[in-house]
Structures are given as structure tokens and as C-alpha cells.
Design a protein around this nucleic acid. Structure first.
Lengths: 333, 333
DNA sequence: AACCCGATTGCACAAACGTGCAGACGCGGG
DNA sequence: CCCGCGTCTGCACGTTTGTGCAATCGGGTT
């Protein structure tokens, strides 16, 4: 059989180019597949192309957010764990079901996928979304599903430079993914994670280029972050990646820090007064963070539980996405 | 391998019975399948059961509305046909893509499936939903996806009795399906489709039992109906099912009727003054119908196009779900 | 015209999935 | 206790779907 030119578009009138003619075919195919329950074979016959093309069109439709699949947690009779967490900690919990047997890196991956799909529907136009960085957020960023929005902005929550690398590529990759998925502007925060001297921070915070970012953060409608936990078996990026020296780590211990969100530290009871490092950290003021409408915390792995407890005590999150094992440990003790 | 008792519920604490323990497993499975992209095999291993069970659990999850798949029509750059219809007729169009080659009964079926899935997301709690009857609505009713709502009511739009059968079973099956799918009360309208004497209707309309239904109809928040078309190749139920005698059909012609919605007739220009049969019909007053917030008209098959044109001229619908062929004929002439 | 390079297609095969069927289970009645 | 009946399970098979690969297309450049 020989080729024929673009057999799918049989209404060949207007050739608008940007939306991609392909995406219209994807919509057609998606309607037939998901709304009419035809098989790919049937669709292929009807659109005069091969089944594999349809398979690929459907992939496209899913990836670009044309098709949205949501699993709704029928409110009241949600799984026991989620209810308990909501009652005890006052956050909306999304527990990711995972058997205990799976290894940590797979847990992270699966939590990340589900987090990405849970976040998707919550994003809407004109949003200003603060995004932290770290291994958790990195994993999430790889699985975002696309969603078209107008005039949205992704803003970096805290600096990422350190003494060894500028950290820029790592953090900016994460931001870029978010921006691309939601069609949003990306605003990086080009400062180190920690200043060496608090005075430098004070000075920088007066710079107009910095104030622009701070202003965006001030107007955030949504924040997305993981937590760091000092006691973690595998310590977070922050505690091992060359951001802090021996002396810094010592002051954290003295200050009874249990964890951090976006490189701002807190204690087990949620307080953060007088924690020395915070005055040099570029993360958002935690009191102010607590006023953001929607604050989504993603946690994977039981080792982060101490940090998580602190973050919850501090009321940093409105929504919590975490694996089942951690959820169990959170309530069962 | 031998059986073990209920291997899926490993948290065997509370045995609430009504929600069905099974549905919790279905939720778990659905999350793993649709949100974490695991294969059924992997899920089966993790939940210690067979892949086929997972397959069935997922079916359940879809049927009961635990999983909702929606294909969104990215607003502005919607297919040309839908835009044209919206502009020319002022209704939100949902065109069901179908090649011209398929036969009429399959068209009906596929329009019905897609209609059911389009309606689903629009239904919400405290709704009062008026539902007509006819072959189109019957087909739709077979494909509704479940959705939990509180305090919703399904109310029959027009009587269904005729001289040969009471018509009750047919219409009531449709209503029952809707009620079950949305967890709603069902209010039947136990009157014939047409009274023999207009005075009887007037009298009945004063009865309290009837007034209760009329009152519900008055407070409708949504109405769902097909259209009848007199010129249809295959005439609608109404025109051939023993509801009307030869004389009635003659007066329709005299009155220049082109079609009906819920057994209320109208002309090509959308008017319905002085159409004699309407005074004996039990359908809703068309002027009043036009004030319902959401009015969904489902049409399949090009033969109904004349009736449809009349209905659109009368402004009876806010949303129109129809097959591609009809949509094309609607705009291309 | 000849060439090249990335995008797109259909093919073929492997992986994943749906479903009829027969056996196992739980429960109530004889 | 045994039997019957409806429900649920896993198996086996056929169907449906994903994907690496080679061929083809389109359009831009030398």
C-alpha cells in the first residue's frame, strides 16, 4: 500500500498551524476511544490510518492533557488513614497505596507520579506557583501532565547555589518542567541557598531584582515543596550536598532543628524563632508561607517522618501527599 | 494454590459493610493503575490476588464513577463545527465524531455513550433533573456512568401512557436508570402522553398529586431530552407508537408542525402558539422549559434535522449533543 | 537535481488486557 | 449434616494495545 497525504484531516479547509493539525486528530481519537469505547482498530479504520498511529495519538492526547483521568476519593468514606490524618493534623491527605515490600527509590517514583497527577487538576489560570527544589520535587517534575493555563507563573521558592556548584541547572530543570507543563512563565531565584553572612542577605533583599521575586512569592496562590529531615537515613540534599559546613550542622543540632521546608528550618514543635541558619537562608519566611492559599507537601519514605511532623506542627501544608507506609507511621504513634 | 480469606484487606479492622469492602479495593487498584501507571500484573502481585481480579476491580471502579475520564475540548480552538454551531444557534455543541459509513443504529449507540459521559460531569447535588423518554433517551440511559450526589431528583417530563400500553415500563426504565446512576429520587408522571380531551388535562392539572410533579418541573435545574421530527425517515416513537390517531396527525400537518420535544410540538420557526395538540399533551410548557438553567438536547441521525432546527429556533436547548453527520448538515445549508 | 535530516508511518512482535468457564467459597434451609 | 444457590476466584485463551525498527515522506540546503 502506498502513502496518501495526511489521510486523517478530511475537512482540509483551514490550515491553522500552531495548534497542530495532529492535536485535532488526537482529540477525535480520544473521544472515540474514551467516550465511545471503540477499540483502536475500529478508530483506525474510521480515520483511515493504522492502529499504531491511533495508539500514538492517544498517548499524545493523554500527555498533553487532552484526556484527563481522575480518581476521586468519594469524600466522606475515604480510606481510614486519610481521615485520621485530616482529623489529627488538619491537612487534606492523599495517601499513595504501596505495599511495604517495594524499595525506596520506587516508592519515591510512584509517589511522584501520583503527586503530579494530583496537583494537575488543582492548577488554574492566573496562578502564581511557588516551587521548591530537592530530590522529591525533581521526581515530581518528571511526571507532570500538561495543562493549558493563561498567565500563570512558576516562581522558585529558595536559592539553589552552593559552594561547589551553582546548583542552577538542577533547580532550573525542575522549574522548567513545571513551566512547560502548565504553559507558565518561569521566574528563577538566582541566589545561593545560604548566604555566608546574614548581612549580605539583608542587603540583597533590598535589590530590586530580588524584590521582584520576593514580591511574586508574596502573591503566591500555591506552593509545592517536600520536606527535609535531619534524622533521615538518607539525608536530604541540603544536609549532604555541600550547602552546609560542619559548623552549620552543629548549630542546627543546638537549635533542636528536626527538618526544613525550602531550606527554612523548624523544630519538632513547629517553631522556628531564633534558629540561626534561617537568617542566612534564602527560603520563604515560614509564617508568611503559612498564609498561601494552597500549600502542597510531598513526602516519600518513612525516614522523613520527623521532619514531616515538625512541618505539620508548623502548619506549613494544606495538602499532604505521602506514601502509605509513612502515613501509617504518622498516625500509629 | 489454595484460597485465603480476603487477602486484599490487610487492615482488617473496621468491617463497615455498606460501602462494600470491595469498593475500597477498587479505589486502591484504580489509584495504582491510573495514577501510578502500574500494570495490572504488578498491582495483582502487590495486593496478592490475580490479575483478572484486578481487571474486574478496575471495571467496577470505572462503572461506579470512582474513576472519571474526561476529554476536554480545550475551549477556544474547538473543532470548527462546534464553533459554527455555537455562533449560529447559540448553543454549546458537542459533536460526536463518527465516519459517515456507519449505520444508523450504531450512530445512535455511540452518540448515546458519549452523551451519557458528557452529562455525567454536569450533574451535581441538589439537582432536579427533568428527563423525557423516547428511543434516544433510552439509549442514553443504558450508558450512564454512576456519580454520587445528595438530594437529587429525577422527574419525568411528560406522560407516557397511550391507548395500547400504559407505556409505563418503558419510560420508567429510563427514569430508574438515571435515578440509580446518580443516586437520586425518581418521580414518575403517571398520566397518558396525550389526553383525549383538553378539559380532562385542565382538571387533572388541578389535582394535588399532579401539581406536585408540575412543581418539581417548575424547579428543574436541568432537562434532558431528544427531539422528534415529523419528516424523519424512521418516525419517532410518538408518531408511530399508537399515541396519535390519523386525525391527530392531520392537525399536526395543518398546524405546520415540524417536530416535538417531550411531546410538545413546534413549527419550523420555533413558535408553538395555537398548535391544537399541545393543549392535550402532558409535556412541559415550552416557554417555561426555556427558562431551565441547563437544557441538554441529544440528537442522533440526520433524519431529525428538521425537528432539531425547530427546537433550536425555539431556543429550547443550552447544550446540544449530536453526531457529526447531523452537525454538518445543520451548518452546511 | 541530488542530498540530507528529522518527523511520521506501518509492520511485526511482545506485552498487557478482558472474559467464558469451571471450581471453591459462604450462607441459609431442609 | 448435607445440599443448593449465588458470589467470587484463577485459569486459559483470544483480543487488544505498546513499541523497536526500517521504510517513506517532506522541506530545506548545497
Amino acid at each position: 500500500m502506498t502513502m496518501m497525504g495526511d489521510p486523517l484531516s478530511d475537512d482540509g479547509a483551514d490550515h491553522e498551524r500552531l495548534p497542530g493539525n495532529r492535536s485535532r486528530d488526537a482529540l477525535r481519537a480520544a473521544q472515540m476511544y474514551y467516550l465511545q469505547d471503540l477499540t483502536m482498530n475500529a478508530i483506525a479504520r474510521e480515520l483511515r490510518t493504522s492502529r499504531s498511529t491511533i495508539s500514538r495519538l492517544l498517548s499524545l492526547a493523554r500527555e498533553t492533557g487532552l484526556v484527563q483521568i481522575q480518581v476521586n476519593n468519594p469524600s466522606e468514606r475515604a480510606p481510614a488513614l486519610e481521615q485520621q490524618i485530616r482529623r489529627r493534623f488538619g491537612v487534606e491527605a492523599h495517601v499513595v497505596p504501596i505495599a511495604d515490600s517495594v524499595n525506596d527509590s520506587e516508592v519515591l517514583d510512584r509517589v511522584a507520579i501520583q503527586a503530579a497527577r494530583t496537583i494537575g487538576p488543582l492548577v488554574d489560570s492566573n496562578a502564581i506557583i511557588g516551587v521548591a527544589w530537592g530530590s522529591t520535587l525533581s521526581a515530581v517534575s518528571h511526571h507532570l501532565t500538561r495543562k493549558q493555563t493563561h498567565d500563570s507563573t512558576i516562581v522558585q521558592l529558595n536559592g539553589a547555589g552552593n559552594t561547589q556548584t551553582t546548583g542552577i541547572t538542577y533547580a532550573s530543570e525542575i522549574l522548567r518542567s513545571f513551566g512547560q507543563a502548565y504553559g507558565a512563565r518561569v521566574e528563577q531565584f538566582p541566589v545561593p541557598a545560604f548566604f555566608d553572612h546574614a548581612e549580605t542577605k539583608t542587603a540583597m533583599w533590598e535589590e530590586r531584582s530580588v524584590r521582584r521575586i520576593l514580591d511574586l512569592q508574596h502573591r503566591m496562590t500555591m506552593a509545592i515543596f517536600g520536606v527535609g529531615s535531619i534524622s533521615a537515613g538518607i539525608p536530604s540534599h541540603v544536609y549532604s550536598g555541600g550547602y552546609l559546613d560542619r559548623e552549620d550542622l552543629a548549630t542546627l543540632e543546638t537549635d533542636e532543628v528536626v527538618g526544613d521546608v525550602a531550606t527554612m528550618f523548624f523544630r519538632a514543635d513547629g517553631t522556628h524563632r531564633d534558629i540561626k541558619l534561617n537568617s542566612r537562608s534564602t527560603g520563604p519566611d515560614l509564617d508568611r508561607l503559612g498564609t498561601v492559599r494552597r500549600r502542597i507537601c510531598v513526602v516519600s519514605g518513612e525516614s522523613k517522618i520527623d521532619g514531616l511532623r515538625g512541618a505539620l506542627a508548623a502548619g506549613l501544608a494544606t495538602d499532604l501527599i505521602l506514601d502509605e507506609g509513612s502515613a501509617r507511621r504518622l498516625v500509629h504513634s
